[in-house]
Design a binder for these strands. Structure first.
Length: 204
DNA sequence: CGTAGGATTTGCT
DNA sequence: GCAAATCCTACGG
């Protein structure tokens, strides 16, 4: 694909990479059906020093071994019957990655509604967006980006980026307060959205 | 073979 | 806002 996103920036600082992923269009092609959305919400997980990460302290087992792939690979894990998707950053020795928590539906919204079995809250949470996009552990875990099934393209540009604490890690001690969550300010397709959407959903 | 872990979602009070 | 539901997978005995 000609306008595929250059993902080399994933090899640099993970927190910077997380900011740069906001607005990127993420595209899946499953069973010949294409669905896509613009990334609105991400969280960074810094494996070695981050108690909330699956790889805290360099812990490595079969479950999280995909985190030790090079940047540009995907790490999918299952929990409570839902899937969560990470884009890996850094090199093999650093198990760092970025959890995609929210996207704004773009292509194939009807397909997403069909997959989700509902018309609201399609993609405003990590388990929701993977289901809408048709992402499955057995299909995507450990796979590389831009190989035809999961593709990144330049998308939109956030007007303003908001940093907050991460969500759902209340039992992770000091890591609870790390400001590693980044969202497009005013975009309603993020978890726990409150208030009124910004003009143009917060895009430039 | 039993069981605990896991970065969630949903609906109800 | 809170608690229940849900579901693999990998680990431990």
């Amino acid at each position: 694909m000609a306008d595929t996103l250059d993902i080399k920036f994933l090899a640099d600082d993970t927190l910077d990479a997380a900011r740069k992923l906001l607005g990127v269009e993420i595209i899946t092609c499953i069973d010949g059906v294409e669905t896509s959305g613009f990334i609105t919400e991400v969280e960074a997980y810094l494996g070695l020093d981050d108690r909330a990460a699956h790889t805290f302290g360099g812990k490595k087992n079969k479950k999280n071994s995909m985190m030790f792939n090079d940047y540009g690979h995907i790490y999918v894990y299952t929990m409570h019957g839902h899937h969560c998707m990470n884009i890996l950053t850094k090199e093999k020795a650093y198990p760092e990655g970025i959890l995609i928590r929210g996207i704004e539906p773009h292509v194939g919204r009807e397909t997403m509604i069909e997959r989700r079995g509902r018309e609201t809250g399609l993609t405003d949470g990590p388990g929701k967006l993977t289901k809408s996009l048709g992402i499955r552990r057995e299909l995507h875990n450990g796979m590389e980006l831009n190989n035809g099934i999961l593709t990144l393209k330049p998308g939109r540009v956030p007007l303003e980026i908001e940093e907050t604490k991460r969500i759902g890690i209340d039992n992770k001690k000091e890591a609870v307060d790390y400001p590693y969550r980044f969202i497009v300010k005013g975009n309603p397709h993020v978890s726990r959205f409150r208030g009124r959407p910004a003009d143009n959903n917060g895009w430039k």
